[in-house]
Amino acid sequence: MKIRIRLHGRGGQGVKTAGRIISTACFLEGHCAEDSPMYGPERRGAPVLSFVRVSDGEPLEERGYIEHPDALVLLDSSSVSRSSPFYGLRTDGLVIINAPLLAPKFAFPSVAFDVSSAALRVLKKDSVSAGAAALACKALGLTSIESLSEAVRMEMNEIGLRPELIERNVELARECFSSVPTVKSFVHAHDPSPTDSNDESSEKLVEIPQMVGLQPIAAIIATGNSRLNETGLWRLTTPRIDYSKCTKCIVCFVYCPDSCITLEPDLTPHIQYENCKGCMICATECPLHAISEERAVPA
């Protein structure tokens, strides 16, 4: 058997760590495993990917990005509405998602569990790497709970977490592990036949599209056009101004790192949500506490 898993989430959520935990747990279980994160200018909140390949002894000779995964792990349910994480997923592929309820429109078999709520309860923060890794290990029938727990300890120790936080992550992983069923027993499955996959033959390990430039220089001719980059999609929390409390002191305007707060001539502030990354500095600094926080809910 050989399983290719692609993880989708946002920078800071633990996408890379989740991949590492799955891979280490599989290794401890006696499988061959490798993992790698997407390399690029990722930032906290930006969409990020990581990749895990597992086999039960067959050497893993592939490297690079996974274009046609057997399973997807979505650490953030809003990624479903935003990008197309299902790209290249095999027709019999499994979707494992951190969400309270299963979105009914999936064309693929899926497993859902609200890791975020469990993490907020157990860890006091929305840090879902151990929980998401546990969902994958269980749903795909990859590892025992012991290998998973040990992998969580190893990887969380590696990133320098305090011992008591590591144990709480193990607790989160165990809760998630026991909360979902094993959907497919990949461990005993054979390689899928070519007819099961989406154009396996054209798979490229790293896809670098050829772009035709107008000028032989690396220049960006338009200045200040990054508004088109919808960084509002990074937002995990949304600031809302209560205008009945606002005194137009413009503190929020001065401190917004991204120039996302604009002022009317009478100094009434407006938040521009297309690009607001949800850093919440405005809410922290507002002297009147007139800016509240909404947890961004996926569409």
Binding site: G45, S226, L228, T231, I250, L263, E274, N275
Partner: peptide, 25 residues
């Protein structure tokens, strides 16, 4: 005072920098 902060923006929204970047301010 802070109210004298110029209104013109030369840094536009949508940069790829992290949310809450102090250097960006």
């Amino acid at each position: 005072t802070m109210k004298d902060t110029p209104r013109e923006e030369y840094l536009q929204p949508g940069s790829p920098l992290c949310a809450g970047c102090g250097g960006e301010i």
